[in-house]
Design a protein around this nucleic acid. Structure first.
Lengths: 230, 230
DNA sequence: ACGAGCCGTAAAAATCTCGTAAAAATCCGC
DNA sequence: GCGGATTTTTACGAGATTTTTACGGCTCGT
């Protein structure tokens, strides 16, 4: 691996300075953001190998930053926090963080935990890890949560967007009704297949030129749906 | 996932009791070992989804237990330890542990970290299994659930696909009528052998150049069917 | 040669699935 | 609390799929 890329989302200048020295000294390429909003953009553009995020950010809550990241990337996320509350740890880990380090922390421990995170990604492939998806006229910016058909932006409701995002994450593969229901509506609604039908119709009306003759949102009869790839 | 299996390697009875209550209460299947040597055997025989190791064991050093495990398995290892020394943490993580929790710890945090570990293995198994089968002009992509004859995609109904997939799983070997009925229609229809005949005819029409003179879907009179290999 | 049982084929009948529209309930910002 | 947007329910016809039925050919042992 070339020098691993790390994005650090942290507002306290003192800690930023400390980590900058520690990480660059170890051969990491470091990019910094001081707000959650900046952090999301930075991760989108730098495609890092690890993200370190402080929970106490000035704008967005750190938990929300993690949630937003997890909508489109599996990059390892290490949480840094002064709050030692167990509830914070559990929440952060459950919304998608991979590790949690409480302040004050030692440089050695953080570095070791970064090495663990890198070890994990070493095996996995990064194919779906792109913030944008495109097929034909249809384009999706997972980072900004925007959808375009040609150069026209299409507004989607939260459920419509989640459904489309789920299909995009498995682009080209069939996604079963049950899987869509689990991902979009949660594990308690896995038997209400008509939800999916209704919303697929919505999506087709908004995204397809001929909703009755779909080019992107394909039906796999008896099984589920598939988003066409080239 | 069925109930995840956890192996706990811990000598202190008090902590063992605490974790037993916590973990089994959450639906985990727990197997315990009180020494490093036992632990290694237990992991070998139980094939767990997560291993929890205490560093302070009576016989082998916990660090060595991790090293020994990493010689042959990638199962997630979570370290438990009273020693809060940073050097211990770094060593444990660097020899292959995935996480480190210092005593005293909260049940919620440990459970959250176990969920993180399980999430990692769940994702790993999904990648890379680009299972495809090919014989002659006939090609089956199990992952994308697509079937091709030459470069033409053939659409199959759910039953047709299940039937073909079952034959592919046992490619080259004879699959009996009863087995096909059980796999495709479920264990309650094992006496309706004509179903199989009807659908084999469908498949041959869709897949074979000369349905009356099949090249791939071969009949084994009186027994069942067989999918030809090269 | 003959009948029994198995196999392939076709087509009718029963059932299920999908897309669609629209009403009812709920949520959300003001 | 109001009004618009969104989500949840409900209903139904067209079409596809599955199930059922029927029949003719084949093999094999007698």
């Amino acid at each position: 691996m070339p020098d691993p890329v790390v994005v650090l989302i942290e507002d306290e200048p003192q800690i930023r300075r400390f980590l900058r020295a520690t990480l660059t000294g170890q051969g990491y390429r470091l990019f910094e953001a001081t707000t959650g909003a900046d952090g999301l953009v930075e991760v989108g553009s730098r495609q890092p190998d690890v993200v370190i995020v402080d929970l106490g950010l000035p704008d967005i809550d750190g938990i929300d930053v993690i949630r937003r990241l997890r909508e489109w990337t599996d990059v390892p996320i290490i949480v840094l926090s002064a709050r030692g509350q167990e509830r914070d740890k559990v929440t952060a880990l459950d919304v998608g963080a991979d590790d949690y380090v409480s302040k004050p922390f030692g440089a050695g421990e953080l570095l070791a935990r970064i090495r663990v995170a890198l070890r994990h990604t070493a095996g996995a492939s990064h194919e779906g890890d792109d913030a944008a998806f495109q097929v034909g006229e249809l384009r999706l910016d997972l980072l900004r949560r925007q959808v375009f058909v040609g150069d026209r932006e299409v507004r989607l409701t939260p459920i419509e967007y989640k459904l489309l995002a789920t299909l995009v994450r498995h682009a080209g593969k069939v996604v079963t009704h049950a899987q869509l229901l689990r991902d979009v509506w949660g594990p308690t609604h896995t038997d209400q297949a008509h939800y999916v039908r209704v919303y697929l119709a919505h999506l087709r009306h908004k995204l397809e030129a001929e909703p009755a003759r779909p080019r992107y949102l394909l039906t796999e009869p008896g099984v589920g749906y598939r988003l066409a790839t080239e």
